[in-house]
Amino acid sequence: MIRSTISAALMFAVIAGPAHSEDYGTVGTTFEIIEPDLLDWIAARLRVAAETGALDEMNAEMAARTERTVRRPHPVPGIAQATETTSWLYDPSITVPEDIADHRGVVFARQGDRVNPFDTVSLRKIYLFIDGENADQVAWAIDQRNQVDGQASIILINGAPLDLMTEHQVRFFFDQGGFITQRFAITAVPASMRQEGRVVRLTEHGPDQWQGLAEEDVE
């Protein structure tokens, strides 16, 4: 008991005793902290790259990569080949979340209003979505475009739009990142989109409507 009390007292004395510090000298080598300016570092690296020709190589590779992407964009994922004809309507109306005013403060849309953009604008063209690697679908899209006197936009979800333009002398677009197909829930091609009154008619066209058209064109 006494020994435990003495040990506790000594430990308390060490912890609670007067604080003091002592210089033990320098241990190891010390260096001044020097942080190079980031812009200076980048400029130096660019100078070295320019002197060695590496910068020209990087520019050439970047240009080639950009050209490859433009000529053949990444395919839109999750789009299959249509196996049957399916059609549905899409209502573009939105409910206004809060009052919207113009630059003069005049409210032109109030919270809770149901607004349909087709009340003021309209789709003047038909939009056709195809796989540009499928010759039958390409032939189908061109035929559909001809039937409406060119008032149709052909949008690829796969393929090389510039090569197809050169071959068919028709403008082709690409659904970069699947922005349009995802927005309208298109999961198979060929598909079409057209306005019907105040809604949009979307149709995924089965093989009976387009398969074999490329061979017929050749004949």
Rank of each mutant, 00 (worst) to 15 (best):
T83W: 14
T83H: 14
T83D: 15
T83A: 15
T83V: 15
E84N: 06
T85R: 12
T85Y: 15
T86G: 06
T86E: 14
T86N: 09
S87R: 15
S87Q: 15
S87I: 07
W88L: 05
Y90V: 14
P92V: 06
P92H: 06
P92L: 12
P92I: 06
S93Q: 11
S93L: 13
I94P: 10
I94E: 15
T95C: 03
T95A: 10
V96Y: 08
P97S: 12
P97Y: 12
P97V: 07
E98K: 10
E98W: 10
D99Q: 11
D99L: 10
I100S: 12
A101E: 12
A101I: 01
A101S: 13
A101V: 12
D102P: 14
D102M: 11
D102A: 12
H103T: 13
H103E: 15
H103M: 11
R104V: 03
G105L: 14
G105N: 07
G105F: 02
G105R: 06
V106F: 11
V106D: 14
V107N: 09
V107A: 05
V107T: 13
F108P: 11
F108C: 07
F108A: 10
A109S: 15
R110D: 01
G112K: 08
D113H: 03
D113Q: 05
R114A: 05
R114M: 04
R114Q: 10
R114V: 13
R114F: 04
R114W: 01
N116P: 11
N116R: 08
P117N: 02
P117K: 01
P117L: 06
F118I: 08
F118H: 05
F118A: 07
F118G: 12
F118M: 12
F118V: 09
D119G: 07
T120S: 13
V121G: 05
V121M: 04
S122H: 10
R124T: 12
R124E: 15
K125Y: 15
I126R: 13
Y127K: 01
L128G: 03
L128F: 05
F129P: 09
F129V: 04
F129I: 04
F129Q: 04
F129S: 08
I130R: 01
I130Y: 01
D131E: 06
D131G: 04
G132K: 01
G132Q: 06
G132R: 02
G132S: 12
N134G: 01
N134P: 09
N134Q: 04
N134C: 02
A135C: 00
A135T: 03
D136Y: 01
D136A: 00
D136W: 01
Q137V: 07
Q137N: 09
Q137I: 05
Q137F: 09
Q137A: 06
Q137T: 07
Q137S: 08
V138F: 06
V138S: 10
V138C: 07
V138K: 05
A139I: 08
A139M: 01
A139D: 07
W140A: 04
A141Q: 01
A141N: 02
A141D: 00
I142Q: 00
I142T: 02
I142L: 11
D143W: 06
Q144F: 03
Q144A: 03
Q144K: 13
R145Y: 00
R145I: 00
R145S: 09
N146V: 01
N146C: 02
N146E: 08
N146A: 08
N146Q: 03
Q147L: 07
Q147I: 00
V148R: 00
